[in-house]
């Protein structure tokens, strides 16, 4: 028998993602992946609409599963483990993925493992870099999360800090909506910021207390709203790209600053940057620069592995499986599961 084949299922937010991966001696082999993003559907609402999201997952998941196995030219009987995101996320969306995974596990009599979405993101870095080893400090930064995790070893993750109000990606989305840019806000602001001056508007840096590892982005969001109101009242013109660049710089500064500090406190030399906002070009640049100054290395996955995907869930699930963890068909969803 060759290396184990794992089916990963991820449906915690607006993407239905499936993957078949294999842990080979040369590293992770992705046999097939299917991703159905609902971004176009949610675009007109300026964000993810939960009820629409779960209905879409339900409509898509069976067809995607068939396409996945077709693409991999595998039979259902060849899967030996199912890993599925069971939290945190939107409850309706999580239920669709977990329901599908349990049905397959029951029919094929194979083990099932529930995976924490944020742990999944952390494992996304191993898919392209199987030789990377813990310990490292991971910044998981997306539309719903901004968390610093001390990854000391498999099964040994400790949260070091998180946002005390908005997630960084949420701030990007909300500011983009206020600027009339659309959804998702991150890539749009990233693009616009490339031609803007990041020092044009001195927005406050979201650093609550110098020695804390907490983030705060709601004050920055308020500062942007206030700036827009003032400009409207004074009927003065300003450059949208300067605003985007200045806002982005404030977010990125806070993220890079706290992450490097966390790595220092944890006594590690490796930083891992994952989650949807890890695609942000300025964040990658700044983090690499700040880490280099501190003698640290930064690793981040390709963009398609930064955003929600099922490869990372399969990878994380398999590591837990190897540690001896198993779930049963009673596996439940947890919208706000702690790491």
């Amino acid at each position: 028998m060759g290396p184990i084949i794992i089916l990963g299922v991820e449906s915690s937010c607006d993407d239905t993602a499936l993957a078949l991966v294999q842990d080979t001696p040369d590293g992770w082999r992705v046999l097939a992946r299917e991703l159905s993003s609902q971004a176009d559907i949610h675009k007109k609402y300026g964000g993810v609409v939960p009820e629409i999201a779960s209905r879409q997952h339900a409509e898509l998941i069976n067809a995607l599963l068939e396409r996945l196995f077709g693409q991999a030219q595998l039979g259902w009987g060849e899967v030996e483990l199912i890993a599925v995101t069971n939290g945190p996320g939107l409850i309706g969306s999580l239920l669709i993925g977990v329901g599908a995974a349990k049905a397959i596990a029951f029919a094929r009599e194979i083990p099932i493992i529930g995976v924490h979405h944020l742990k999944g993101h952390i494992y996304s870095v191993f898919i392209e870099r199987p030789s990377l080893a813990m310990p490292f400090v991971a910044l998981v930064v997306s539309g719903g999360h901004t968390v610093l995790v001390n990854a000391r070893g498999h099964g040994d993750f400790v949260e070091m800090g998180r946002t005390r109000d908005d997630a960084a990606g949420e701030a990007f989305d909300k500011v983009a909506k206020a600027l009339g840019l659309g959804y998702p806000g991150g890539p749009l602001i990233d693009q616009l910021a490339k031609v803007g001056n990041p020092g044009a508007i001195p927005f406050p840096r979201a650093l609550p207390a110098k020695d804390s590892l907490e983030f705060s982005f709601s004050g920055l969001k308020t500062a942007v709203m206030y700036f827009l109101k003032q400009q409207a009242r004074d009927q003065s013109a300003f450059s949208l790209s300067d605003l985007a660049a200045s806002f982005q710089e404030a977010v990125v500064d806070a993220l890079a600053e706290k992450t490097v500090r966390a790595a220092g406190l944890a006594g590690v030399k490796q930083i891992v940057l994952v989650g949807g906002v890890a695609c942000n070009s300025r964040l990658r640049e700044k983090m690499t620069q700040r880490a280099a100054e501190a003698g640290m290395d930064v690793y981040y996955p390709s963009p398609e592995l930064c955003t929600d995907n099922a490869e990372m869930i399969a990878c994380a699930g398999y590591h837990e499986f190897k540690l001896g963890r198993r779930d049963t068909l009673r596996l439940d969803v947890h919208p706000s599961l702690a790491i």
């Binding site: 993810v48 719903g144 109000d165 908005d166 709601s218 919208p335």
Partner: peptide, 13 residues
């Protein structure tokens, strides 16, 4: 417990 924005998951308890 820390109280954060539930925009993403709709509800925190």
């Amino acid at each position: 417990e820390p109280v954060t924005s539930p925009s993403f998951v709709l509800m925190h308890q």
